[in-house]
Design a binder for these strands. Sequence first.
DNA 1: CCTATATCCTATCGGATCAGTAGGCTTTAA
DNA 2: TTAAAGCCTACTGATCCGATAGGATATAGG
Lengths: 151, 151
Amino acid sequence: MISQKAKYALRALLVLADLKTDSISIAEMAEQHRMPRKFLEQILLDLKHAGLVQSRRGVAGGYSLLKPADTITFGQVLRLIDGPLAPLPCLSRVAYRRCEDCHDEASCRIRRVFGHVANATRAILDQTTIADAQADPERVGRILGGIQGAA
Amino acid sequence: MISQKAKYALRALLVLADLKTDSISIAEMAEQHRMPRKFLEQILLDLKHAGLVQSRRGVAGGYSLLKPADTITFGQVLRLIDGPLAPLPCLSRVAYRRCEDCHDEASCRIRRVFGHVANATRAILDQTTIADAQADPERVGRILGGIQGAA
DNA sequence: CCTATATCCTATCGGATCAGTAGGCTTTAA
DNA sequence: TTAAAGCCTACTGATCCGATAGGATATAGG
Protein backbone atom coordinates (compact mmCIF):
# COMPACT_ATOMS: atom_id res chain seq x y z
CA MET A 1 0.00 0.00 0.00
CA ILE A 2 1.22 3.46 -0.83
CA SER A 3 0.86 6.04 1.92
CA GLN A 4 -1.85 8.65 2.14
CA LYS A 5 0.88 11.23 1.88
CA ALA A 6 2.03 9.86 -1.46
CA LYS A 7 -1.53 9.89 -2.74
CA TYR A 8 -1.88 13.54 -1.76
CA ALA A 9 1.43 14.32 -3.43
CA LEU A 10 0.33 12.75 -6.70
CA ARG A 11 -3.04 14.45 -6.53
CA ALA A 12 -1.38 17.78 -5.84
CA LEU A 13 0.91 17.37 -8.82
CA LEU A 14 -2.05 16.54 -11.03
CA VAL A 15 -3.83 19.64 -9.77
CA LEU A 16 -0.81 21.75 -10.63
CA ALA A 17 -0.50 20.12 -14.03
CA ASP A 18 -4.17 20.77 -14.77
CA LEU A 19 -3.91 24.38 -13.67
CA LYS A 20 -5.23 27.06 -16.01
CA THR A 21 -4.08 29.97 -13.87
CA ASP A 22 -0.37 30.25 -13.25
CA SER A 23 -0.46 29.25 -9.59
CA ILE A 24 -2.69 28.11 -6.77
CA SER A 25 -2.44 28.62 -3.02
CA ILE A 26 -2.27 25.77 -0.55
CA ALA A 27 -5.56 26.88 1.00
CA GLU A 28 -7.38 26.82 -2.31
CA MET A 29 -5.99 23.46 -3.29
CA ALA A 30 -6.76 21.98 0.10
CA GLU A 31 -10.33 23.17 0.04
CA GLN A 32 -11.15 22.44 -3.58
CA HIS A 33 -9.67 18.97 -3.46
CA ARG A 34 -10.44 17.99 0.11
CA MET A 35 -6.98 17.58 1.50
CA PRO A 36 -5.86 18.54 5.04
CA ARG A 37 -4.40 22.00 4.70
CA LYS A 38 -1.37 21.73 6.95
CA PHE A 39 -0.49 18.26 5.79
CA LEU A 40 -0.65 19.40 2.19
CA GLU A 41 1.60 22.29 3.12
CA GLN A 42 4.30 19.87 4.24
CA ILE A 43 3.93 17.76 1.16
CA LEU A 44 4.23 20.66 -1.25
CA LEU A 45 7.30 21.77 0.65
CA ASP A 46 8.84 18.35 0.12
CA LEU A 47 8.02 18.49 -3.56
CA LYS A 48 9.58 21.91 -3.69
CA HIS A 49 12.77 20.75 -2.01
CA ALA A 50 12.95 17.96 -4.54
CA GLY A 51 12.77 20.51 -7.33
CA LEU A 52 9.45 19.38 -8.78
CA VAL A 53 7.42 22.50 -7.95
CA GLN A 54 8.05 26.14 -7.19
CA SER A 55 6.36 28.64 -4.92
CA ARG A 56 5.83 32.30 -4.38
CA ARG A 57 5.37 33.63 -0.87
CA GLY A 58 3.30 36.52 0.29
CA VAL A 59 -0.08 37.91 -0.54
CA ALA A 60 -0.61 36.62 -4.06
CA GLY A 61 1.56 33.58 -3.49
CA GLY A 62 1.02 29.95 -4.38
CA TYR A 63 2.46 26.92 -6.08
CA SER A 64 3.09 25.86 -9.64
CA LEU A 65 4.97 23.09 -11.41
CA LEU A 66 8.66 23.65 -11.93
CA LYS A 67 9.43 20.59 -14.04
CA PRO A 68 7.24 19.78 -17.04
CA ALA A 69 4.54 17.26 -16.19
CA ASP A 70 5.91 14.77 -18.69
CA THR A 71 9.24 14.63 -16.87
CA ILE A 72 7.82 13.78 -13.44
CA THR A 73 7.35 10.05 -12.99
CA PHE A 74 5.20 8.27 -10.47
CA GLY A 75 8.28 6.36 -9.36
CA GLN A 76 10.11 9.55 -8.58
CA VAL A 77 7.29 10.86 -6.43
CA LEU A 78 6.77 7.59 -4.59
CA ARG A 79 10.46 7.22 -3.80
CA LEU A 80 10.54 10.78 -2.57
CA ILE A 81 7.58 10.39 -0.24
CA ASP A 82 7.45 6.70 0.68
CA GLY A 83 11.02 5.61 0.15
CA PRO A 84 12.21 2.67 -1.96
CA LEU A 85 9.75 0.92 -4.27
CA ALA A 86 11.50 -2.43 -3.91
CA PRO A 87 9.68 -5.19 -2.02
CA LEU A 88 12.93 -6.22 -0.32
CA PRO A 89 15.74 -3.95 0.90
CA CYS A 90 18.24 -6.10 -0.99
CA LEU A 91 16.43 -5.27 -4.24
CA SER A 92 16.42 -1.51 -3.89
CA ARG A 93 18.67 0.40 -6.23
CA VAL A 94 18.44 3.70 -4.43
CA ALA A 95 18.54 2.35 -0.89
CA TYR A 96 20.18 -1.06 -1.08
CA ARG A 97 20.46 -2.86 2.22
CA ARG A 98 21.52 -6.42 2.70
CA CYS A 99 18.97 -8.74 4.34
CA GLU A 100 21.05 -9.56 7.37
CA ASP A 101 19.66 -13.07 7.69
CA CYS A 102 20.52 -14.06 4.14
CA HIS A 103 23.89 -15.76 3.63
CA ASP A 104 23.94 -15.82 -0.14
CA GLU A 105 22.04 -13.18 -1.97
CA ALA A 106 22.69 -14.58 -5.42
CA SER A 107 21.06 -17.86 -4.58
CA CYS A 108 18.23 -16.52 -2.42
CA ARG A 109 15.07 -18.03 -3.79
CA ILE A 110 12.81 -15.42 -2.29
CA ARG A 111 14.86 -12.61 -3.67
CA ARG A 112 14.67 -14.16 -7.10
CA VAL A 113 10.89 -14.11 -7.15
CA PHE A 114 10.61 -10.60 -5.82
CA GLY A 115 13.22 -9.43 -8.27
CA HIS A 116 10.66 -10.00 -10.98
CA VAL A 117 8.04 -8.09 -9.04
CA ALA A 118 10.46 -5.22 -8.59
CA ASN A 119 11.23 -5.11 -12.29
CA ALA A 120 7.59 -5.15 -13.26
CA THR A 121 6.58 -2.33 -10.94
CA ARG A 122 9.60 -0.25 -11.88
CA ALA A 123 8.80 -0.72 -15.54
CA ILE A 124 5.43 0.87 -14.93
CA LEU A 125 6.12 3.49 -12.31
CA ASP A 126 9.35 4.83 -13.73
CA GLN A 127 7.84 5.33 -17.16
CA THR A 128 4.46 6.71 -16.27
CA THR A 129 4.49 10.47 -15.81
CA ILE A 130 2.08 12.98 -14.37
CA ALA A 131 1.33 14.03 -17.94
CA ASP A 132 0.44 10.43 -18.83
CA ALA A 133 -1.99 10.21 -15.95
CA GLN A 134 -3.33 13.63 -16.81
CA ALA A 135 -4.05 12.66 -20.40
CA ASP A 136 -7.05 10.74 -21.62
CA PRO A 137 -7.75 7.37 -19.97
CA GLU A 138 -6.54 5.27 -22.86
CA ARG A 139 -3.11 6.71 -22.95
CA VAL A 140 -1.69 5.03 -19.89
CA GLY A 141 -2.84 1.73 -21.31
CA ARG A 142 -1.06 2.35 -24.57
CA ILE A 143 2.16 3.23 -22.84
CA LEU A 144 1.97 0.08 -20.84
CA GLY A 145 1.40 -1.93 -23.97
CA GLY A 146 4.74 -0.63 -25.19
CA ILE A 147 6.83 -1.85 -22.31
CA GLN A 148 6.76 -5.53 -21.48
CA GLY A 149 4.45 -4.78 -18.67
CA ALA A 150 1.17 -5.26 -16.96
CA ALA A 151 -1.45 -7.81 -17.82
CA MET B 1 8.40 -3.65 1.35
CA ILE B 2 7.17 -6.99 2.54
CA SER B 3 7.40 -7.60 6.26
CA GLN B 4 10.05 -9.61 8.01
CA LYS B 5 7.29 -11.93 9.12
CA ALA B 6 6.29 -12.68 5.53
CA LYS B 7 9.90 -13.36 4.64
CA TYR B 8 10.16 -15.85 7.50
CA ALA B 9 6.89 -17.46 6.41
CA LEU B 10 8.16 -17.97 2.88
CA ARG B 11 11.49 -19.26 4.11
CA ALA B 12 9.74 -21.65 6.46
CA LEU B 13 7.58 -22.99 3.65
CA LEU B 14 10.64 -23.50 1.50
CA VAL B 15 12.33 -25.36 4.34
CA LEU B 16 9.31 -27.62 4.67
CA ALA B 17 9.17 -28.16 0.93
CA ASP B 18 12.85 -29.07 0.85
CA LEU B 19 12.49 -31.45 3.74
CA LYS B 20 13.86 -34.96 3.36
CA THR B 21 12.57 -36.22 6.69
CA ASP B 22 8.83 -36.12 7.20
CA SER B 23 8.78 -33.26 9.69
CA ILE B 24 10.93 -30.73 11.50
CA SER B 25 10.53 -29.09 14.88
CA ILE B 26 10.29 -25.34 15.33
CA ALA B 27 13.48 -25.36 17.36
CA GLU B 28 15.44 -27.14 14.67
CA MET B 29 14.14 -24.92 11.92
CA ALA B 30 14.80 -21.79 13.95
CA GLU B 31 18.35 -22.77 14.71
CA GLN B 32 19.33 -24.18 11.34
CA HIS B 33 17.91 -21.25 9.44
CA ARG B 34 18.54 -18.44 11.89
CA MET B 35 15.04 -17.35 12.68
CA PRO B 36 13.78 -16.20 16.10
CA ARG B 37 12.27 -19.27 17.68
CA LYS B 38 9.15 -17.84 19.28
CA PHE B 39 8.38 -15.60 16.36
CA LEU B 40 8.67 -18.54 14.00
CA GLU B 41 6.33 -20.44 16.27
CA GLN B 42 3.63 -17.83 15.75
CA ILE B 43 4.16 -17.78 12.03
CA LEU B 44 3.91 -21.54 11.63
CA LEU B 45 0.76 -21.44 13.68
CA ASP B 46 -0.71 -18.89 11.28
CA LEU B 47 0.26 -21.07 8.35
CA LYS B 48 -1.36 -23.99 10.07
CA HIS B 49 -4.60 -22.11 10.69
CA ALA B 50 -4.62 -21.21 7.03
CA GLY B 51 -4.36 -24.87 6.15
CA LEU B 52 -0.97 -24.71 4.46
CA VAL B 53 0.98 -26.83 6.95
CA GLN B 54 0.23 -29.44 9.58
CA SER B 55 1.80 -30.22 12.92
CA ARG B 56 2.24 -32.98 15.41
CA ARG B 57 2.51 -32.17 19.07
CA GLY B 58 4.47 -33.94 21.74
CA VAL B 59 7.90 -35.40 21.98
CA ALA B 60 8.61 -36.30 18.38
CA GLY B 61 6.45 -33.49 17.04
CA GLY B 62 7.08 -30.96 14.34
CA TYR B 63 5.78 -29.40 11.17
CA SER B 64 5.31 -30.52 7.61
CA LEU B 65 3.55 -29.21 4.53
CA LEU B 66 -0.13 -30.01 4.26
CA LYS B 67 -0.76 -28.66 0.77
CA PRO B 68 1.56 -29.64 -2.08
CA ALA B 69 4.27 -27.05 -2.66
CA ASP B 70 3.04 -26.39 -6.17
CA THR B 71 -0.35 -25.27 -4.89
CA ILE B 72 0.94 -22.66 -2.46
CA THR B 73 1.45 -19.32 -4.15
CA PHE B 74 3.51 -16.40 -2.96
CA GLY B 75 0.42 -14.23 -3.24
CA GLN B 76 -1.50 -16.46 -0.89
CA VAL B 77 1.21 -16.32 1.74
CA LEU B 78 1.71 -12.58 1.46
CA ARG B 79 -2.00 -11.86 1.76
CA LEU B 80 -2.17 -14.13 4.76
CA ILE B 81 0.69 -12.48 6.61
CA ASP B 82 0.85 -8.91 5.32
CA GLY B 83 -2.69 -8.32 4.09
CA PRO B 84 -3.74 -7.10 0.66
CA LEU B 85 -1.18 -6.91 -2.14
CA ALA B 86 -2.91 -3.96 -3.78
CA PRO B 87 -1.13 -0.59 -3.69
CA LEU B 88 -4.44 1.17 -3.00
CA PRO B 89 -7.33 -0.06 -0.84
CA CYS B 90 -9.73 0.61 -3.71
CA LEU B 91 -7.79 -1.86 -5.85
CA SER B 92 -7.83 -4.77 -3.46
CA ARG B 93 -10.01 -7.70 -4.40
CA VAL B 94 -9.89 -9.43 -1.05
CA ALA B 95 -10.11 -6.32 1.11
CA TYR B 96 -11.69 -3.64 -1.02
CA ARG B 97 -12.10 -0.30 0.71
CA ARG B 98 -13.14 2.91 -0.93
CA CYS B 99 -10.64 5.78 -0.80
CA GLU B 100 -12.84 8.13 1.16
CA ASP B 101 -11.42 11.23 -0.46
CA CYS B 102 -12.14 10.06 -3.99
CA HIS B 103 -15.48 11.10 -5.50
CA ASP B 104 -15.36 9.07 -8.65
CA GLU B 105 -13.40 5.88 -8.62
CA ALA B 106 -13.88 5.08 -12.28
CA SER B 107 -12.26 8.32 -13.35
CA CYS B 108 -9.55 8.45 -10.68
CA ARG B 109 -6.31 8.99 -12.53
CA ILE B 110 -4.14 7.70 -9.75
CA ARG B 111 -6.18 4.56 -9.41
CA ARG B 112 -5.81 3.94 -13.10
CA VAL B 113 -2.04 3.93 -12.97
CA PHE B 114 -1.85 1.75 -9.89
CA GLY B 115 -4.37 -0.62 -11.38
CA HIS B 116 -1.68 -1.63 -13.83
CA VAL B 117 0.82 -2.08 -11.05
CA ALA B 118 -1.65 -4.24 -9.17
CA ASN B 119 -2.26 -6.41 -12.22
CA ALA B 120 1.42 -6.87 -12.88
CA THR B 121 2.29 -7.90 -9.34
CA ARG B 122 -0.72 -10.19 -9.08
CA ALA B 123 0.24 -11.84 -12.33
CA ILE B 124 3.57 -12.76 -10.80
CA LEU B 125 2.73 -13.48 -7.18
CA ASP B 126 -0.45 -15.43 -7.75
CA GLN B 127 1.18 -17.74 -10.25
CA THR B 128 4.51 -18.35 -8.61
CA THR B 129 4.41 -21.21 -6.12
CA ILE B 130 6.72 -22.46 -3.43
CA ALA B 131 7.59 -25.31 -5.78
CA ASP B 132 8.57 -22.82 -8.48
CA ALA B 133 10.89 -21.00 -6.12
CA GLN B 134 12.20 -24.30 -4.85
CA ALA B 135 13.10 -25.49 -8.33
CA ASP B 136 16.15 -24.53 -10.30
CA PRO B 137 16.84 -20.83 -10.74
CA GLU B 138 15.79 -20.71 -14.37
CA ARG B 139 12.33 -22.00 -13.82
CA VAL B 140 10.84 -18.89 -12.28
CA GLY B 141 12.11 -16.93 -15.24
CA ARG B 142 10.45 -19.29 -17.69
CA ILE B 143 7.14 -19.11 -15.89
CA LEU B 144 7.29 -15.37 -15.98
CA GLY B 145 8.04 -15.43 -19.67
CA GLY B 146 4.74 -17.25 -20.11
CA ILE B 147 2.53 -14.69 -18.49
CA GLN B 148 2.63 -11.16 -19.86
CA GLY B 149 4.83 -10.21 -17.00
CA ALA B 150 8.04 -8.83 -15.70
CA ALA B 151 10.75 -7.16 -17.68
C1' DC C 1 5.74 51.58 6.77
C1' DC C 2 2.17 48.62 8.18
C1' DT C 3 -0.74 44.93 7.79
C1' DA C 4 -3.01 41.08 5.79
C1' DT C 5 -1.91 37.01 3.57
C1' DA C 6 0.80 33.71 1.96
C1' DT C 7 4.69 30.15 2.39
C1' DC C 8 8.48 28.06 5.45
C1' DC C 9 9.96 25.13 9.02
C1' DT C 10 10.22 22.45 13.31
C1' DA C 11 8.05 20.19 16.94
C1' DT C 12 4.66 17.39 18.71
C1' DC C 13 1.10 13.81 19.21
C1' DG C 14 -2.16 9.88 19.35
C1' DG C 15 -2.79 5.65 17.29
C1' DA C 16 -1.31 1.73 14.63
C1' DT C 17 1.90 -1.52 13.13
C1' DC C 18 6.22 -4.28 13.49
C1' DA C 19 9.34 -7.49 15.35
C1' DG C 20 9.76 -9.85 18.51
C1' DT C 21 9.45 -11.98 23.96
C1' DA C 22 7.25 -14.17 27.82
C1' DG C 23 4.92 -17.56 29.89
C1' DG C 24 1.50 -20.67 30.92
C1' DC C 25 -1.46 -24.61 28.80
C1' DT C 26 -2.07 -28.90 26.31
C1' DT C 27 -0.63 -32.98 23.88
C1' DT C 28 2.33 -36.93 23.08
C1' DA C 29 5.91 -40.65 23.39
C1' DA C 30 8.86 -43.18 26.13
C1' DT D 1 5.02 -39.62 35.13
C1' DT D 2 7.84 -36.67 32.91
C1' DA D 3 10.31 -34.41 29.34
C1' DA D 4 9.67 -32.40 25.00
C1' DA D 5 7.11 -30.62 21.68
C1' DG D 6 3.34 -27.46 19.80
C1' DC D 7 -0.76 -24.02 21.20
C1' DC D 8 -2.27 -19.63 22.48
C1' DT D 9 -2.63 -14.97 24.47
C1' DA D 10 -0.65 -11.00 26.16
C1' DC D 11 2.69 -7.69 26.29
C1' DT D 12 6.42 -4.40 24.95
C1' DG D 13 9.63 -1.16 22.92
C1' DA D 14 10.51 1.08 18.68
C1' DT D 15 9.11 3.09 14.65
C1' DC D 16 5.95 5.00 11.34
C1' DC D 17 1.63 7.42 9.84
C1' DG D 18 -1.40 10.98 9.46
C1' DA D 19 -1.92 14.61 10.76
C1' DT D 20 -1.96 19.43 13.89
C1' DA D 21 0.30 23.61 16.10
C1' DG D 22 2.49 27.62 15.98
C1' DG D 23 5.90 30.77 15.20
C1' DA D 24 9.23 32.79 11.52
C1' DT D 25 9.68 34.89 7.15
C1' DA D 26 8.44 36.98 2.79
C1' DT D 27 5.41 39.91 -0.23
C1' DA D 28 1.84 43.07 -2.20
C1' DG D 29 -1.21 46.79 -1.55
C1' DG D 30 -2.67 50.84 0.77
